[in-house]
């Protein structure tokens, strides 16, 4: 028996806004603990991890572990048809994922399961020297400030500030955010703004974002739901200066 019911589909929709802009296909794994997925884009620049714990769902029936391989663009088209006050139900029938949204009207979509073209490696565990929190809206606005001058951004964290800097052809920009965390080391790395914007499509997932950084290390951006009921995290490879 496989049936998941979520009274607020926006968590799913928001997650897939970002996921579908990064990867073409995903394997969604569901077992008695919850739902999770790991995926990496074809160029191996961005890794994405989503985890939704069993207790987040209003109904969670999953008798045996199941793997659902879906085309993210197709699933996103369906999820876009949900309204925030709809109740979402996921079931499986034959080779399809059945997605229903029930509000004033009931909509049923059958999304074909696919064969995966490539495998996703396990999430790497990286030790970071620096970790801070920032409201995701603040991060998004800062990136919008920076992108008017350049297509890449330097993240610089010291004991007081997160500084985002860019040097453009005609203008330079710098945004400073007082992070208020205990940081004992400095960290600096450069990233493509286009990739950061893909991750920020998940802004409605959770208000608080954790940034982990080290010199020329990947940027880890973690969005956590209240009571650790869910987590969406990204790992973005840096640009390296030559």
């Amino acid at each position: 028996m496989f049936k998941l019911i979520l009274s607020d589909p926006s968590i799913f929709k928001t997650s897939f806004e970002a996921i579908s802009s990064i990867v073409d296909e995903v394997q969604i794994e569901v077992d008695s603990d919850g739902l999770r997925l790991n995926a990496i884009d074809r160029s191996h620049i961005t890794y994405v991890h989503l985890e939704l714990k069993e207790r987040l769902f209003d109904v969670f029936q999953c008798d045996e572990p199941i793997k659902l391989n879906v085309d993210t663009e197709e699933l996103m088209k369906v999820l876009k048809r949900s309204k925030s006050d709809d109740v979402m139900e996921l079931t499986v029938d034959g080779g399809s994922l059945i997605v229903t949204f029930e509000g004033a009207i009931k909509k049923t979509f059958k999304v074909k399961l696919i064969d995966l073209e490539y495998e996703t490696p396990e999430s790497p565990s990286i030790e970071y020297p620096v970790k801070i929190t920032i409201p995701i809206k603040t991060l998004k606005e800062s990136i919008q400030d920076i992108e008017i001058v350049a297509d890449r951004v330097e993240f610089n964290i010291d004991q007081d500030f997160l500084k985002l800097k860019a040097v453009g052809e005609f203008s330079d920009a710098e945004v400073e955010y007082l992070h208020g965390e205990k940081v004992t080391e400095d960290a600096r790395a450069i990233f493509a703004i286009e990739n950061i914007k893909e991750m920020l499509k998940a802004e409605k997932f959770a208000d608080t974002t954790y940034i982990s950084l080290g010199d020329d290390m990947p940027l880890t951006l973690t969005l956590e739901l209240l009571n650790e009921e869910g987590e969406l995290s990204f790992l973005l490879a840096p640009r390296i200066e030559e």
Partner: peptide, 11 residues
């Protein structure tokens, strides 16, 4: 000048 690195070195 900078080049895009890959996550492969971290796996």
């Amino acid at each position: 000048k900078s080049r895009q690195s890959s996550l492969d070195v971290f796996f």
